[in-house]
């Protein structure tokens, strides 16, 4: 079962990554990348790293993709979609929304009953990772805060408009 799921997720990931590279439209590329990141998150869950799976979904598929789409929308000044296509888009959006809602309800109802894939492996549980991050790997962990500050200041300075522009 795990192997079957692994190859399913792997096929999804590789297919959407290829689609992202080949697609001519940047917005489609970004959406392909969301699919790729989500399926990689599923893979991490299968590989007994639940914390990594959650971080992958939240940081990559959430934060970084919002950044990508923000930049694409800010600059990409193409024309909007036609009215004929828009009807299809709304129908598809409603359909996907209903599926997502059903999935969430299903997941919340069944959550306590489903055994976690990584639970039998005590070595890689979130508890163990948190303990190690704040004991053995404390210095690297603190140094990343300096990295984040540097990146934040760098991004602000780069994006800021210069005087007289």
């Amino acid at each position: 079962m795990a192997i079957l799921l692994f190859f399913l997720f792997a096929a999804f990931a590789v297919g959407s990554v290829l689609g992202m590279i080949i697609s001519r439209n940047q917005a489609y590329s970004a959406l392909f990348l969301v699919v790729a990141f989500a399926s990689l998150g599923g893979l991490f869950g299968l590989l007994g790293a639940p914390f990594m799976a959650v971080v992958q979904i939240i940081i990559y598929a959430g934060a970084i993709m919002v950044l990508f789409i923000f930049v694409i929308m800010m600059i990409h000044l193409g024309e909007g979609i036609s009215a004929e296509k828009k009807k299809w888009t709304i129908a598809a959006a409603v359909f996907m929304g209903i599926i997502l809602l059903a999935e969430i309800v299903f997941a919340v109802k069944g959550a306590p009953a489903v055994p976690m894939a990584g639970q039998e492996m005590a070595g890689t549980s979130p508890t163990e990772i948190g303990r190690l991050l704040f004991t053995k790997y404390l210095y690297p962990f603190e140094i990343t805060s300096i990295l984040i500050i540097a990146a934040l200041v760098g991004a602000v300075v780069l994006i800021k408009k210069r005087e007289g522009e």
Partner: peptide, 9 residues
């Protein structure tokens, strides 16, 4: 994440 922020800048 840091790289993406600076890269977009």
């Amino acid at each position: 994440v840091s790289e993406a922020a600076v890269g977009f800048g």
